Simulated assay, not measured.
Amino acid sequence: METGISRRGLFGAGAAAAAILAGAPATARAASGLTLRWWGNNGWEVRIGPKTILIDPWPTRFKTGTYTSAGADPRTPLSVNRELIDGYLDRGLLRADHILVTHGHYDHLTDVPYLAQRTGATVLGTETHLSLMAALGAPEDQLAIATGGEDLTFDGYSIRVLRALHSATGTRARVAFPGTRTLSRRDRPRVIADLLEGGTLAYQVSGGGASVLDFGGSNYVESELAGLRPDVVLVPPGGAKVTEYVPRLLRALGNPRYVAATHWDDFDLPLGRAHDPNGGLEVLRKAVAAASPGSEFVVLDHLGEFTP
């Protein structure tokens, strides 16, 4: 089953959301108190009552050449579009109590230090992620280290941190911009190659009667998933080097009710232009349908919302 949910009101195409549920029974379902909004790439907003948790927010989306034949230029300077971010914050379209960082690459971490400054949010990440963010100006008293295994309870929601793996690509199954750095380092990252992967985490956020599990890359540690039964799992396309990437994942999670696509768009393009550059979305849709036909496949437009 597939759900396509589009909300384009912020981009001039009307304020109403369109929902298409293909092949699903026309039965009423009680909505949970958890709502997801997609900010492009692996950027997610999880709202639970008055609380907001952001995962890998990156509204700036500067050009790197990632989806060209040459690939991302490692010398691309880092930049933060503060005017754009301020506009979202000042209009109440963006806020955060927590910000969760899955890994240190530019398309996941670059905007987080400024968002932490503006929102006062607590930021979770590995030692490398926190080192990079502190060097980029994140308030250090808001940074909380995570290694995987943490199960944390807050006012109205909980966060479970899982050890995970980054996507592996190419004939040698290599990780882009690998490496780590210590918290004691304070040299400022200047180009995208300076933002090291630094270990990868996955997060399950629960509250409002529902839970969502996010992977920032197309790989995972299967043993970490034992006993997890999220209502929604956010899955990136890819995983060609991972044995039974989609079937094994969904089987380990008990075939979740919803599988939502993440990290599938061309992030050289600005928000409002969600484009699948290499057909990965269709490959993922077919893989989910084959592996777990009872799961609903959810695809959102930029700033689209979904309540499980």
Rank of each mutant, 00 (worst) to 15 (best):
L78F: 01
T126A: 02
T35V: 04
V123K: 05
I192G: 02
R61I: 02
D97H: 11
R118E: 07
T35W: 06
G33S: 06
D141S: 07
R7D: 12
P308Q: 10
G238M: 09
A287G: 07
E150P: 06
H275V: 15
V46T: 12
A226R: 14
R8G: 09
V205P: 00
L271S: 01
A210Y: 04
Y220T: 08
G272D: 06
P237L: 04
V112A: 00
A144E: 15
H129I: 06
A193V: 12
L143C: 00
A146M: 03
W264E: 01
V259A: 14
G209V: 08
A164P: 03
T307N: 14
L94C: 10
G125F: 03
L143N: 06
A16W: 10
W58H: 10
W58F: 14
S79P: 02
L78M: 09
L100P: 01
P50Q: 05
L196V: 07
G49K: 07
S69Y: 09
S69A: 15
V288I: 13
E127Y: 15
L78H: 02
L201R: 01
S206N: 01
G104M: 03
A226M: 11
G216C: 13
V298H: 07
K63Y: 14
V175P: 03
V246P: 00
R181F: 01
Y220G: 04
G148P: 01
G14I: 09
E296N: 06
T182G: 14
H302P: 10
T119W: 01
F297H: 00
L34M: 10
E222F: 03
K51C: 07
A287V: 07
Y67F: 15
S6W: 07
G239L: 05
G198Q: 04
P308L: 07
L132W: 09
L303M: 13
P270Y: 03
F215D: 03
L93T: 14
L253D: 05
L34C: 02
A18D: 12
T27F: 11
A30T: 14
T200S: 11
G33H: 04
R273V: 09
A144T: 05
R285G: 08
T171G: 15
A291G: 05
S292I: 02
S167A: 14
E140V: 12
D301P: 04
T68E: 13
I85F: 09
G4E: 12
M133K: 03
T3M: 12
R248F: 09
F11W: 08
G217C: 11
Y258H: 11
T122G: 04
P57T: 05
S6Q: 14
H105A: 08
K51L: 08
T3H: 04
P270A: 09
H108I: 11
A19R: 13
A70Y: 13
L89R: 07
L36P: 01
F306A: 06
L249H: 09
R47F: 02
R7Q: 12
L152H: 10
A72Y: 02
K63L: 11
L115E: 00
H302D: 15
G65W: 08
V161D: 05
D56Y: 10
